[in-house]
């Protein structure tokens, strides 16, 4: 009759030491369309895939500006994401009012995680069904964090969440070593390529993705469609589908071309791998 005795409320433990409701919330993050983030020493780039629910609607916004120095990309329940972005905005404004300086990213993320944690320990609440990639700049440099419905948070060089994010993660894992010293434009290019990995067959167009940047001397902003399309064309047209070339700098070009082929098979491998990991491992590990 019952599939699971221990998942009817958030605060009930299973004998194996799991909180099923919290894990379900983390599943919601995986259902959402993909969002990715990566950073160098000075810049953070966030990107996401825009999927419309039907032919008749526009897509929902998945990247939000929190303050001049912080932005988020979300995957999961967009409504929850909006609520949390609003909270983050107000925290930034209040800090700015009191200290006339930007709120350190790490502190905002801890506050956000604490807020999410409370929902895992109150019988009358539910966890937020949204994962947030928080990118920002403060006196200690550029940061990228992932915030999870469980109240956990992690700092990353590069990360991807949402559906088919495993393919993007694989791409990022193979390339992240060079990200620290990447230029802003290379970072954006890698963001677009990582987004493309999650598309599975569909062609990358500016109409189905959003990219945003924050960095030294550059307030958080979403790149407009034309800019993104130009960047996509730069590597799609020049090198054809498989081998992006003729990008402004030769080194990045070589790297990009070299692993493009590899990334294609890798993508397929990653897909199986992703399926395998997602089944066995307790989502709490995320």
């Amino acid at each position: 009759m019952f599939r699971n005795q221990y998942d009817t409320d958030v605060t009930t433990w299973s004998p194996a030491g799991r909180l099923f409701q919290v894990e379900y919330a983390m599943e919601a993050v995986k259902q959402g369309s993909a969002a990715i983030g990566l950073r160098s020493k000075t810049h953070v780039v966030l990107g996401c895939v825009n999927k419309a629910n039907s032919e008749l609607t526009s897509h929902q916004k998945k990247i939000f500006k929190v303050d001049d120095h912080i932005g988020v990309a979300i995957a999961g329940l967009t409504a929850d994401g909006r609520v949390l972005s609003r909270y983050m905005r107000s925290e930034c404004i209040n800090y700015g009012f009191t200290y006339e300086s930007p709120l350190p990213v790490g502190r905002l993320v801890v506050q956000l995680a604490d807020k999410a944690q409370v929902c895992t320990q109150r019988s009358w609440k539910r966890p937020y069904g949204v994962g947030l990639l928080v990118g920002g700049l403060d006196e200690s440099g550029a940061h990228l964090y992932y915030n999870c419905p469980s109240g956990n948070y992690f700092e990353y060089q590069a990360f991807a969440i949402g559906s088919r994010s495993q393919a993007a993660k694989t791409y990022l894992e193979r390339r992240f070593n060079s990200f620290m010293d990447s230029s802003r434009d290379d970072l954006i290019k890698d963001a677009l390529l990582a987004i493309r990995e999650t598309l599975q067959g569909e062609t990358l167009k500016s109409s189905i993705c959003t990219v945003a940047v924050v960095g030294a001397g550059e307030a958080f902003h979403v790149l407009d469609n034309e800019t993104v399309q130009k960047l996509i064309d730069a590597f799609e047209i020049a090198g054809g589908e498989e081998a992006p070339a003729a990008a402004p700098d030769a080194a990045a070009e070589e790297g990009g071309a070299a692993d493009q082929g590899a990334a294609a098979d890798q993508g397929a491998a990653a897909a199986d791998q992703g399926a395998a990991t997602e089944e066995g491992v307790a989502p709490m590990d995320i």
Partner: peptide, 11 residues
């Protein structure tokens, strides 16, 4: 917070 950030004179 112990996170390397600290309030300066301006703050």
């Amino acid at each position: 917070w112990d996170d390397g950030n600290s309030l300066g004179p301006k703050e």
